[in-house]
């Protein structure tokens, strides 16, 4: 139910992992790559992960969501390597007997992934590149302490 891969993500296939006859709701989030940053054109994105820790943290997020929302089906796939514009970089699929828990768990899972999983993205421009967040945080030190948990 956890996957870190260089291959293109297939949202239908990942979502199918959480289908159960006992579920009345499935919510799937797709994170897709944007083509701009502050007016600059982004040509492509490069994702880097600390693989073994990223997998461990993704599994922790999955377990947290199952415990907090009483769910049994949570699937998370994150892409790494070079990802073209408009492609899918993250899929979170939640299967639940009822819709409310599925929506909440999906929202929270994505927030947690962005906080705790050691994956970094670099935007590549015509004239350079930028590690997202890494450099952003240097200008807002108040936000830089939220990553140690």
């Amino acid at each position: 139910m956890i996957e870190l891969t260089h291959d293109a993500l297939d949202p239908e296939k990942i979502t199918a992992k959480v289908y159960r006859d006992t579920n009345g709701a499935v919510v799937t989030f797709l994170g897709t790559t944007r083509d701009n940053f502050e007016g600059k054109q982004v040509l492509t994105l490069e994702y880097e992960a600390f693989d073994e820790m990223a997998i461990k943290k993704l599994e922790e997020v999955r377990q947290e969501m199952m415990a907090e929302f009483g769910l049994e089906q949570v699937a998370i796939s994150h892409r790494v390597g070079t990802v073209g514009i408009g492609e899918i970089s993250l899929v979170v699929a939640i299967g639940s007997p009822h819709r409310k828990e599925a929506f909440y768990a999906c929202h929270k899972a994505v927030d947690r992934i962005k906080e705790v999983v050691p994956i970094w993205k670099k935007e590549v421009y015509q004239d350079g590149s930028r590690w997202v967040a890494c450099e952003d945080h240097e200008f807002s030190p108040a936000e830089s302490h939220g990553h140690a948990h």
């Binding site: 994170g31 994702y47 992960a49 600390f50 073994e52 820790m53 990223a54 461990k56 994150h78 970089s89 993250l90 994505v110 992934i113 962005k114 906080e115 705790v116 999983v117 050691p118 994956i119 970094w120 993205k121 590690w131 997202v132 967040a133 890494c134 952003d136 945080h137 830089s144 990553h147 140690a148 948990h149």
Partner: peptide
Amino acid sequence: NADYAAPDVILKPGDDVCLIPPVSGG
């Protein structure tokens, strides 16, 4: 050893130690 470590954690020889810049997955 592939988990976040608080500042007071004591290091041992052979520990797998990594520096983690602010993350930006998703």
